[in-house]
Write a protein that binds this DNA or RNA. Structure first.
Length: 239
DNA sequence: AGCTGATCATAT
DNA sequence: ATATGATCAGCT
């Protein structure tokens, strides 16, 4: 596996997903000549970048889908052997200064409209190289889900526009919520609060709660499919 | 144990 | 500084 170009069509992308389905991250990293980090603390984006390389996602691009020609976004989901998401999913940064957009114009909607989810069995007791790539989930945002996301997004953006960023905690939002997104909490940007005063806040990002990705996984599993072709069968429910 | 706030690396 | 890719880790 080498010199991977951008997939020309969705069939080609599906084929590539099939080729890595069931492989360990160690196997894939070796094939792509990626160095395997000792831990993810100092390599938090490593898994995503490995999968990007394997599938021919356009690397180092900005404000674009991972597969621009196909208009598909790639997201890895760390899950345990019971197919439970272990983390939330980062979507994009929150536009603080921009004037109000409509939902359909928003970055959140356009990033999440078509997503290729790739679950990775990532139990903490598994070393990085032992972690297993599962079957791909090609997903298009259903209408009922869109309504929930749209409502979340509109409420969150309204709070920001009205100057209530300080009160806007991660507790708001059914599926979509807002959390800090910065190198650290000392990174600050300008923000006009509800009183019209110029203040500073930590840059923020949109994230999807684990309950959101759990619903996607459950729906997929309900179609009599398994997430992995390896000896590690995700559909086995125990402990 | 799950959630929320904080944090890490790299590229442009 | 801000975008990409996320996971860490303290607190409830």
């Amino acid at each position: 596996m080498q010199n991977i170009h951008a997939p020309k069509n969705i069939q080609e992308l599906q084929q590539r997903c099939q080729q890595i389905n069931g492989q360990t991250l160690g196997q894939l990293a070796t094939a792509l000549q990626f160095n395997i980090p000792a831990d993810l603390l100092h390599a938090k984006g490593w898994v995503g970048q490995l999968l990007e390389a394997a599938l021919g996602a356009t690397a180092a691009s900005k404000a674009m889908p991972d597969f621009p020609d196909l208009n598909i976004e790639l997201k890895t989901i760390p899950i345990n052997a019971q197919s439970k998401p272990l983390e939330s999913t980062y979507v994009c940064s929150v536009p603080i200064k921009n004037s109000m957009q409509s939902w359909r114009e928003s970055w959140v909607y356009n990033k999440l409209k078509h997503v290729l989810w790739i679950p990775i069995i990532s139990n903490p007791e598994l070393t990085i190289q032992q972690r297993i790539i599962c079957a791909p989930i090609f997903w298009q945002m259903p209408e009922d889900i869109e309504e929930i996301l749209r409502t979340d997004w509109e409420e969150l953006m309204e709070m920001l526009q009205l100057g209530y960023a300080q009160k806007l905690s991660a507790k708001f939002g059914t599926y979509l919520h807002i959390r800090p997104k910065a190198a650290n909490s000392r990174v600050l940007i300008d923000y006009v609060n509800a009183e019209g005063e110029l203040t500073k806040i930590v840059p923020k990002g949109f994230y999807l709660r684990p309950s959101f990705t759990q619903a996607i996984l459950n729906n997929y599993l309900a179609q009599q499919k398994t997430l992995s072709v390896s000896q590690y069968t995700v559909s086995d429910h125990n402990s």
